[in-house]
Design a binder for these strands. Sequence first.
DNA 1: CGTTCGATGCACT
DNA 2: GTGCATCGAACGT
Length: 222
Amino acid sequence: MTTRGRYDRALPRSFYQRPTLDVARDLIGKYLVRSSTEGLTSGLIVEAEAYIGESDPACHASRGRTTRNDPLYGEPGHAYVYFTYGMHYLINAVTEKEGTAAAVLIRALEPVQGIDLMRARRQAGRSGSRPEVAAHELCRGPGNLARAMGITLDENRMDLAGSTSNTLWIEDRDQQFRDIGWSPRIGIRVGTDRLWRCFVPGHPCVSGSRASWPGRSLQAET
DNA sequence: CGTTCGATGCACT
DNA sequence: GTGCATCGAACGT
C-alpha cells in the first residue's frame, strides 16, 4: 500500500472557512476520498461550482431556510448532499461561516483509486450488458461522481474536515494546476451571469461540451 | 456535430 | 401540481 488515502491528511476546517470562490478554486487539484465497506475510491477534483448565500438566485438558500437546505446554514467543512431529478445525488462542501448558506458543488473527478469499484457502482442496477464505462467518464458530472463514489443522503451533513468521520473527506496530495478556467454555472436558469464554475481547461473528465471551454491545454505538475 | 426529451422521486408552493 | 445545481439515448443537421 501507499500512503495515499489517509484521513489524517484531510483538509482542515479553516480551509472551508474562507470566501467560497477561493475555496472552489483551491478545491481544484485536491482529492475526494471515500472509504466504505466496499473499498476505497478517490479522485482528483477537476471541476467545481460556487453557490453563495441567499442573495445568489441559483443557490438553494435563495428562498430561505428549509429542511432540505438546512446543512447549507451549518458549520463549514460539512457535506451538503441532496437528491434531484428523481435519481441523482449531488455533493457540496459547505463554506464561509455558519449562517451564510454557501457551498461548493463538486462536479467532476479524475478517477484515481478504486476504478473497478466505481465502474461496478455505475453499472449496478442496470439491465442487460452494456459497453464498459470509460475511466474518464466514471466521475464526469456531479450525478455520475456521486454514483461512482457511493455517495447518497447517508453522507449528508458528514464532516469532511473534523475527526469524527473517516469515510468521506478531501485531502491535499500536493497537486497543482497552473491554469484554471472560469465559466457560468451549468444547469441553472438564474444567476447565469456569474462566472462561478471553475475547472481544469481541456481535462477529459470535465463535464459539459468541449466547445464551451476556453481552448487551453492541460498543464499539471506534481 | 447539435438539440430535444424521457426517466424518476421528492421538497416545496 | 411544479420544478429541479442531471444523464444519456434518440434524433436532426
